[in-house]
């Protein structure tokens, strides 16, 4: 059966050899994708067979029995039970087979190998946070090793999101209030898309990331870099590190002074040391403390004119990262509106 399905999949019209993109499916980059694609192609061929059968019969009847004169009498056959039972039972058998294939494929999608590498995933509007064992955190990319099962344990901070990696053929909703999980084992190195597939509001279409698959050695190196990079930057140049962390803020906070979902960092920078009016009528001094508090407890001081929309970053940023962000806003005059470092500071 499997051989037959593989044979079907190899047909030139519909597929190219893995791992390149096929006509139907994207590249096969995980251990399960071959199996899923075989099932997909088996169903597709069954569908094509029946579709062609129906359309050929329909076309043939259309031409053959086309009305040429208005007086023709037609056959008065009203039914034929054995024939009708035939086209009830044959599809029934076929769908039972399809159901079984789907079920076995699904079971392998949900059965996590015990030695899986565990990554904690947090979803929030509109971005992902991936935390590796050991504390390395990344947001724009998900770095994983090739040839080792990876398990994602996922939780959402706000609404339902869904993590989808087409090249791995995996998808799972991320639901607030509970953990869900997902596993895969990458079989090819490379870069692959990661999408959010559950509608989650304004930034849904841009809530993506890139999955980067490396060989084991290179992967270890990357994780080390992830852990170390901020330590490598000198204390008085932490604002450069802050610029890099700003990736996680860019969805809502601009650098050019235009108000977004949250106030622009430019505006916050210009108010440094002065008073900012809050939504509840209080005012607050814009300083290191205020910025830090706002990242960790965003609901505490809502700027006038904005809603309580920011998720808390408590536990997601280490102390040095927080400091880097504070320095970035404080020294925003060293960057232009696009966020490029001015020449005198390079």
């Amino acid at each position: 059966m499997t051989m037959l399905m593989n044979l079907l999949y190899q047909t030139p019209f519909l597929a190219t050899a893995a791992p390149r993109r096929g006509f139907w499916m994207p590249e096969q980059a995980s251990t399960v994708s071959g199996e899923i694609d075989s099932i997909f192609m088996a169903i597709t061929w069954i569908s094509i067979f029946f579709f062609v059968l129906i359309v050929i019969l329909m076309g043939y009847f259309m031409v053959k029995y086309r009305r040429v004169e208005n007086h023709k009498t037609t056959s008065s056959v009203t039914h034929n039970t054995p024939l009708e039972l035939t086209w009830t039972i044959i599809p029934l058998i076929i769908v039972i087979v399809i159901f079984y294939m789907g079920m076995t494929g699904y079971i392998s999608l949900r059965s996590v190998p015990v030695d899986a590498y565990e990554i904690d995933v947090t979803a929030q509007k509109w971005g992902w946070t991936f935390e590796h064992p050991g504390g390395a955190i990344e947001t724009e990319t998900l770095t994983i090793p090739k040839g080792r099962p990876v398990r994602l344990t996922m939780a959402s901070q706000d609404v339902i999101h869904s993590l989808f990696i087409p090249a791995f053929r995996v998808k799972q909703d991320v639901v607030p209030g509970r953990y869900t999980y997902l596993w895969f084992e990458a079989s090819e190195t490379g870069r692959y898309d990661l999408f959010c597939t559950e509608y989650c509001g304004t930034g849904h279409a841009t809530m993506g990331a890139v999955v980067e698959v490396y060989e084991e050695d290179e992967f270890k190196q990357k994780i080390d870099e992830l852990l170390r990079w901020i330590e490598d930057i000198e204390d008085d140049r932490l604002f450069v590190a802050g610029k890099r962390l700003y990736n996680r803020c860019v969805q809502c906070h601009s650098l050019d002074g235009s108000p977004g979902i949250g106030p622009s960092f430019r505006e916050t920078h210009e108010l440094w040391g002065e008073q900012r009016r809050l939504a509840d009528g209080r005012t607050v001094t814009v300083d290191e403390n205020y910025v830090k508090e706002s990242i960790i407890y965003p609901a505490q001081d809502i700027t006038e004119g904005y809603g309580n929309l920011m998720p808390s970053f408590r536990g997601q940023l280490r102390e040095r990262e927080l400091r880097a962000l504070v320095q970035f806003i404080r020294h925003l005059d060293r960057f232009d509106d696009e966020g490029n470092l001015l020449e005198e500071w390079q």
Partner: peptide, 22 residues
């Protein structure tokens, strides 16, 4: 026929995981 037959891909668990919400 096309609509119904592609329903098979979506009713099948293993492939629906990939195709859901696309």
């Amino acid at each position: 026929s096309i609509g119904g037959l592609t329903g098979l891909h979506l009713g099948t668990l293993a492939t629906d995981i990939h195709l859901h919400d696309t």
